[in-house]
Amino acid sequence: MSDLVTYVYAVARNADALAEPTAALKGVADAPVHLVAGTHDDALVFVASHVPAQDFQEDALKRHLEDLDWLEAVARAHHGVIEAVATRTTVLPMRLATVYLDDNRARDVLDGGRALFSERLARLAEHVEWGVKIYVEPSVTPDAPGPTPTADLTPGRAYLRHRRQQQSVRDSVYRAAQQAAERVEAAGRKHAADHARHRVQQGVLAGGAGENVVNDAYLVPRDRCEEFRAEVTHAADGVQGVRVEVTGPWAPYSFAMPPAGSSDAEEGACP
């Protein structure tokens, strides 16, 4: 096996327009970015780099994916390249750590997935992704009842009553969150071409105060971004205990898909 493999960031068109800007980019492992063109005259290309093979062999990759520092560095480089290319043309992002043995193998995959890649690029043209997260903050108690006197209760009964009151407060907050989610989704769908629901984030990934209860993505035409952001941001105004966070615009990560008949290479392992 060669000391280097081909790491692919995205599929794009307009190879002529991308050649000069991508030449100045650095990607994973600080490697220069280049274009791998297909054999058809349709300007379809992989945006790629040559990276150390030893880091992307199956066993090594499994270890690396448990190393948060390594994973963060790779993710930042991966997304940095995609976002830079997305300012020039429509991109179809590939999964993190998608690698092939060499440029020739990557070209074979590009040619083999040509129809699917072309269809997805056409669908994503002039669209961007917006992220929408909803958080609940149980410390905020919408319409919560006041404390119940417990002077005449035994310690055990007082404890049980307190727990019931706490549960009532949490139920109120989650009902408010459901109401907010319905409003936000209705506002988002007015402007979006597509909608994807992701697993809610927990712990350090949640990225903010409160509990993440909705983690969605919307594919929005560029000319409707301002309306989308304004309506979604304010869709839950007045709902206590709920916070809506809107981020973007991004390259359409959530609306990309792997080529048909993907192998272990498309899963991110070095074949």
Rank of each mutant, 00 (worst) to 15 (best):
D194A: 07
A53V: 03
V184D: 00
L116F: 09
A10S: 08
T89N: 04
H191W: 15
V132F: 02
Q166V: 08
A84Y: 13
A196I: 10
I134W: 09
A196C: 05
L18G: 12
D216V: 01
A17F: 13
L4D: 13
G80D: 01
A186N: 09
F117H: 13
A125M: 05
F117R: 05
D3V: 08
A15P: 15
D42V: 14
H78N: 12
H162V: 04
F117I: 05
F228G: 04
V36C: 15
S139V: 10
R157A: 03
N212D: 04
K26L: 05
A196V: 03
L219W: 14
T39H: 10
A10W: 12
Q240A: 07
T150N: 11
R161L: 11
V8I: 13
R163E: 12
R13A: 06
A196W: 02
D67W: 00
C225R: 08
Y159L: 07
M257Y: 11
A60Y: 08
A12Y: 12
G188I: 04
Y253R: 01
T39P: 06
A23K: 12
A193Q: 12
R170T: 08
E245Y: 00
G27P: 06
A236M: 02
V204D: 09
V11S: 08
S139Y: 08
R123W: 11
R95T: 03
A75H: 07
D42C: 15
V85Y: 07
L121I: 00
G208N: 13
A10L: 05
V109L: 05
F255Y: 04
L4F: 08
T6D: 03
D111H: 04
A24F: 11
Q202K: 10
V200L: 01
P142I: 07
S49D: 03
A187I: 00
P258Y: 02
F228K: 06
S262G: 10
W130N: 04
L18K: 14
P32W: 14
D30N: 03
V244S: 11
E58I: 01
A230V: 11
T22P: 15
T150F: 06
A144Y: 06
A180W: 00
A43L: 13
P147Q: 10
D108M: 11
A269T: 03
D264R: 01
G131I: 01
Y253T: 04
A29V: 11
A77F: 04
V45P: 08
P138W: 02
G38K: 01
R95W: 07
A187K: 10
R161H: 13
R199E: 00
R120G: 01
P249D: 09
H127P: 06
D3R: 11
R163C: 05
H40S: 12
N212Q: 08
V8N: 02
V140A: 03
Y253D: 04
W130R: 06
A192T: 04
T87D: 14
R161I: 00
P142W: 12
E226Q: 15
E83R: 03
